[in-house]
Computed example of a mutant assay.
Amino acid sequence: MTRPSDLYALALEHRLPLVSGICALGSIVVVSSAWGFQLIGGYAPCELCLEQRIPYYAGAPVALLALLLSLKAPNTKLFTRLLLIAFALLMIYGGGVGGYQAGAEWGFWPGPDDCSGDVGGAVNDAASLLSSLKTIQIVSCTDVQLRILGLSFAGWNVVTSAGLAVIAFWAALVRGRKA
């Protein structure tokens, strides 16, 4: 029977590829979920929602590079750790944006004044402005479109970003017998 301490020792020994893979997969799942809610569920993102995706767009390739290096070039442990730290910092930024939006949704502070949706393209005259207003879907950053277990999309982004940041920092900074 495997003891929990044995599992921890095994995870510690292989933490760089393990966590790099988890971070890459986590980023891909989060962005895919956001796109799924948008395209299939019909939930239009606001400006802050779109900004919260950027760390995942950047983080997935960073984590994949860390995974590749940890598997194919084990002598690059320092660079792999630096990539995981960069990934964690991206997640902290994204979680911060999510926290700001979640706080605005709960009314703890005002949301951004310019968070009102995409006007979509250039408008040359008043007639085209009026006709374009019929098709524009304006999404406020302070209106919650859906809550799952009490948290909005922004709230879940905070949880996910924090979790990914913690494990990325753990893998990068904790020393073990092997890295």
Results as ranks from 00 to 15, higher is better:
Leu83Cys: 04
Ala165Met: 04
Arg147Gly: 00
Ala73Trp: 05
Phe169Asp: 12
Ala86Tyr: 06
Tyr93Ser: 11
Thr160Ala: 13
Ile92Asp: 04
Ala88Trp: 11
Ser32Glu: 08
Glu13Ile: 00
Pro55Arg: 10
Gly94Val: 12
Arg177Tyr: 01
Gly117Phe: 03
Ser116His: 14
Thr80Gln: 10
Pro4Glu: 08
Leu78Arg: 14
Leu68Thr: 05
Ala102Val: 04
Asp113Leu: 10
Gly121Asn: 04
Gln101Ala: 02
Cys115Glu: 09
Ala122Ile: 12
Gly99Pro: 14
Cys49Tyr: 04
Val139Ser: 05
Ser132Trp: 02
Gly150Ala: 07
Pro45Val: 00
Leu84Arg: 03
Gly107Pro: 10
Phe87Ile: 01
Ala60Gly: 05
Ser128His: 15
Gly21Val: 11
Ser32Cys: 12
Gly41Cys: 08
Gly163Cys: 03
Leu84Gly: 03
Gly121Gln: 01
Leu83Tyr: 02
Ile148Thr: 13
Ala102His: 14
Ala154Gln: 02
Gly117Asn: 06
Trp156Ile: 04
Ile28Phe: 04
Trp156Ala: 01
Val174Met: 06
Ile167Glu: 09
Tyr43Met: 10
Gln101Glu: 11
Lys72Asn: 06
Leu82Asn: 00
Ala34Glu: 04
Trp106Tyr: 11
Leu68Gln: 01
Tyr8Arg: 15
Gly96Asp: 05
Val29Leu: 15
Gly98Thr: 06
Val158Gln: 03
Leu69Cys: 10
Val166Ser: 04
Phe153Thr: 05
Ala58Thr: 09
Val62Gln: 00
Leu48Met: 14
Tyr43Cys: 00
Cys49Met: 01
Phe79Asn: 00
Ile54Leu: 15
Leu10His: 12
Gly176Val: 15
Ala60Leu: 01
Arg3Glu: 12
Ile40Gly: 13
Ser132Val: 00
Cys115Ala: 13
Thr160Met: 07
Leu78Ile: 10
Ala63Ile: 07
Ala168His: 06
Cys23Ser: 12
Ser5Ile: 08
Pro17Asn: 11
Met1Thr: 07
Ser131Tyr: 01
Ile167Phe: 11
Ala63Cys: 08
Cys23His: 06
Gly41Thr: 13
Gly121Thr: 00
Asp143Arg: 07
Val144Ala: 15
Asp113Arg: 07
Lys77Glu: 15
Arg81Glu: 10
Tyr100Gln: 14
Gly94Leu: 12
Leu82Phe: 09
Ser128Leu: 12
Ala171Asp: 04
Ala179Leu: 06
Gly36Val: 02
Ile28Glu: 00
Glu51Ala: 10
Arg15Lys: 14
Ala168Arg: 08
Gly26Ile: 06
Val119Ser: 15
Arg81Met: 03
Lys72Thr: 13
Leu164Glu: 03
Asp6Ile: 08
Cys46Asn: 15
Gly96Tyr: 01
Ala58Ser: 07
Ala102Phe: 14
Leu149His: 09
Leu12Asn: 15
Ser27Val: 08
Cys141Trp: 01
Leu84Asp: 07
Leu78Met: 12
Ile148Pro: 05
Ala73Pro: 00
Asp113Gly: 11
